[in-house]
Design a protein around this nucleic acid. Structure first.
Lengths: 164, 164
DNA sequence: TTAGGTGCAAATCATTTGCAATCTC
DNA sequence: GAGATTGCAAATGATTTGCACCTAA
């Protein structure tokens, strides 16, 4: 099974949850059951889900929650700097609550899977960019579109076996 | 006047226009007056306009053109690789017909102005990214959000003069 | 001639908003 | 208790689509 991509350990999970709850309260946002449920769900989900996906997953354990509340809570999390909105040209917005600071992402052109990317030399690259322009306060937003290993394997085996 | 950002010379303009027309015909797309008008307009516009802005500007010289046709033609240009769609988290898509290959862009957080960016070391950076992942066929999509010189000047003079 | 294009208007779809009822602090 | 928050439903706004009429090749 290929499911071992960054599965947060139980302890890091609850740490992040505590962080988020503390941040919400520090910012004087009310800790409603809906918000708690959403945050708890996001902390265990590393797939960069969209509002709609979050809504669907939440509904199973919280059937009365509304999509408007999901959007509202996501906006709150972005406001306090604890969620990073990702617009990947898909027609909707995904959210990353695990690493709220801007960082590069990988996007699979076939299946839409989104992974985080670690690149050496990122800060040097940004430094070079800052030196190359008269714009100030530069913040990078970097994506790499490609084909993920799973889709590559699927393509490979399909062509190798002649499956249409 | 600060208007000297990459004003295409008349000759490069018509070269690009000819290129686009040739490419359209080569791909067996019909050269309708609407398409010609749109392409001619885009070639003289380096502001990275949205479909709506393109529509508005075209209407003044071509009052019967429809928004659907604008979208259709933009899609054609993207299809033949002669326009680059830019999704900058604004809620709509901009188009760059001057440098259809992916390249970094600067986005002003205040006024939304979009400039092209030249960075030394871009290809090395992409090379490093390719080496850092199991995704294949990586294509970069790079934006830098910042404050453009005009907005910086406005902010500076406002605070300096006490203008609210 | 004839398939590809155009221009309307209606349909989609993610996201936002208005508002009365309901909760957290 | 008061003001923030919720959940519905309706509104918004960019983009797409259906379709009858045109027109470039």
């Amino acid at each position: 099974m290929e499911n071992n991509r960054k599965a947060a350990s139980p302890s890091s999970r609850s740490n992040r949850l505590d962080q988020l709850v503390a941040k919400l309260q520090a910012a004087r946002y009310r800790l409603t059951p809906q918000r708690l449920a959403l945050v708890r769900m996001l902390v265990t989900d590393t797939s960069h889900p969209s509002a709609d996906q979050i809504y669907a997953r939440l509904r199973t354990e919280y059937p009365t929650i509304s999509l408007a509340t999901v959007y509202n809570t996501l906006e709150v999390l972005v406001d306090i700097g604890e969620a990073l909105p990702l617009d990947l040209n898909e027609g909707w917005t995904r959210y990353d609550v695990h690493r709220p600071a801007a960082h590069p992402h990988l996007v699979c052109r076939k299946c839409g899977r989104v992974d985080d990317l670690e690149i050496e030399g990122l800060s040097d690259f940004v430094k070079t960019a800052r030196a190359s322009t008269t714009f100030s306060d530069l913040q990078p937003r970097i994506f790499f579109d490609g084909i993920c290993p799973d889709c590559n394997r699927a393509l490979g085996s399909a062509s190798a076996t002649g499956i249409p």
